[in-house]
Design a protein around this nucleic acid. Structure first.
Length: 288
DNA sequence: GGGCAGGTCTAAG
DNA sequence: CTTAGACCTGCC
């Protein structure tokens, strides 16, 4: 189905900016395949538009759901302007450059549990290895949801599926010591000790969401901010990782109390601004 | 083969 | 409250 104009959504930037780990490029240029909303989906550009299809039955999935998943109900032109206006006030050319570079990048609304586990895995790790672990996790614990080009695709496993499976979790490729954090999080969610739905945007404050997430073993400030932003819809999320930390130091001379500075300086769409900076940094400074 | 990777935990001042 | 070390493991 036709989703939107290609001006509104850039697939490469959206899928490769580091917010998600399960969308991969297909052989046909510019197309991506991934599992989202419980289905195998293919995203491609056709005649100036973005189309979504599926090798399986896609009838259960509404255009509305996809619009929400790709954050298409938001006006990114206006968001970009507001970020730039704020940046201009402090003569911040760096953010303006990042915004310009990232046009078409959208923040996805990803499944809360998948986001939580994915970013627990991301700690002290690198992207290729994160993807290996998540893929292996899905193959070993997730339901098969479709095939394409001779390959089977799997859904992200539920908390119930992962709870109490420590021994098997330890065998997931490249997982290492993170198995314990995944196991504990899955158990707390499966038995209702923690309810991710209750800390989504609109149902709890951002601060409450961060506090709840940080109570989980293996979840610190950075991971909590990623989960709040990418999985729970909290636009205030502003993950401070090694790249952003370096930028805050180089661009603004900030070396500590990042949270304070960020709250003061990025009042408009902090999460989107952060993702723009992150992707801009990574793309322009690959390997030094 | 040592070092690094979208950090977090723990122990100690 | 701040800070140093350890930490699974695939890849360079």
């Amino acid at each position: 189905m036709k989703l939107c104009s290609r001006d509104e959504l850039n697939l490469r930037k959206t899928f490769e900016c580091g917010q998600c780990f399960r969308w991969n490029p297909l052989a046909s240029a510019g197309s991506y395949i991934g599992v989202a909303e419980g289905t195998v989906l293919i995203a491609e550009e056709k005649g100036g538009n973005i189309h979504i299809s599926s090798p399986t039955d896609i009838s259960s999935i509404s255009k509305n759901a996809l619009m929400h998943y790709f954050d298409l109900f938001q006006d990114y032109r206006r968001i970009e302007e507001e970020i730039c206006l704020e940046a201009d006030k402090r003569k911040d050319g760096f953010v303006r450059s990042a915004v310009k570079y990232c046009r078409g990048l959208r923040l996805l609304h990803q499944a809360p549990f998948e986001t939580l586990i994915s970013f627990i895995i991301s700690a002290n790790n690198n992207i290729p290895k994160i993807k290996i672990s998540i893929e292996d996790l899905c193959v070993k614990f997730g339901d098969p949801v479709g095939e394409f080009s001779g390959e089977t695709y799997h859904a992200f496993p539920s908390a119930e599926r992962l709870a109490g499976r420590m021994t098997e979790l330890e065998k997931v490729r490249a997982i290492g010591y993170r198995a314990r954090a995944i196991s504990e999080a899955a158990e707390k969610i499966a038995n209702g000790r923690i309810d991710l739905a209750k800390i989504e945007q609109g149902k709890s404050s951002f601060e409450e969401a961060i506090k709840t997430l940080c109570a989980l073993y293996g979840v610190g400030e950075k991971v909590a901010n990623c989960v709040a932003l990418f999985g729970l819809g909290h636009s205030e999320g502003f993950p401070v990782d090694t790249w952003i930390r370096k930028a805050l130091k180089e661009q603004y001379g900030v070396e500590k109390k990042f949270e304070e500075f960020v709250k003061q300086s990025f009042q408009f769409h902090p999460g989107i601004a952060q993702q723009y900076m992150f992707f801009y940094l990574r793309e322009t400074r690959k390997k030094g």
